[in-house]
Design a protein around this nucleic acid. Structure first.
Lengths: 100, 100
DNA sequence: TACAATATGTCACAGATGTGACATATCTCA
DNA sequence: TGAGATATGTCACATCTGTGACATATTGTA
């Protein structure tokens, strides 16, 4: 069965601007990789491989767009990311540039 | 010298959503490939290879998003593209999906 | 006359990029 | 006790995609 135009476009946005979409998620509220993957599927119907997300999160932190703190919830390790001012700047520039 | 953040993002948008950017150009006013290339450089500072643009224009027409008519200006052939309702639908869906 | 600009077209190749597999560890529920 | 969910990490490989070269034709200008 054919995918709808809307689904197709949302997929493309996630594929090509996954960093921006992650910054948007984390901007709304600090969160960790696993949750981003689940939310992307729940809210947008987009499946993102964790092999794509985790290296990207590390890269975004290295570039200073995100900052993480480790949280250990009953022995289970989570890296909770917050957006930085540099990350906000990228988001703003993107939104401004993509505006119709 | 380092490229600015804005320039970097605009480049990425053109690289990944060249079809959408072309639809936006053509939506503003019907035009041909050569003009699109020149306008992208003038208005956005983005150089797009004509080897990217022409095959894409043909593809967009094949998919029914654009329609062209040939115009011969003093023996010089131009394919002038207009956006179709299907093209407008894609533009609208994209703008809606990318909205913050 | 010869070069630059206008105008479109094709295609091989290199470089970029996501996918999916392999890897590890804990918790919960049946 | 075993499976599924939570949680993160790495990396080889195949696939996708733009670049740049090759190709052609006309007009304007020096």
């Amino acid at each position: 069965m054919a995918r709808s135009l809307k689904e197709e476009i949302v997929r493309r946005i996630f594929r090509n601007f996954l960093d921006v979409m992650i910054l948007r998620f984390v901007h709304k509220e600090p969160m960790w990789g696993y949750r981003i993957i689940k939310l992307a599927e729940l809210e947008y119907g987009v499946k993102i491989g964790h092999g794509t997300v985790y290296p990207l999160l590390n890269d975004l932190e290295k570039r200073g767009l995100l900052r993480s703190r480790k949280e250990s919830k009953k022995g289970r390790l989570r890296k909770i990311y917050k957006i930085t001012s540099k990350g906000l700047e990228l988001l703003d520039t993107f939104n401004e540039s993509i505006g119709e």
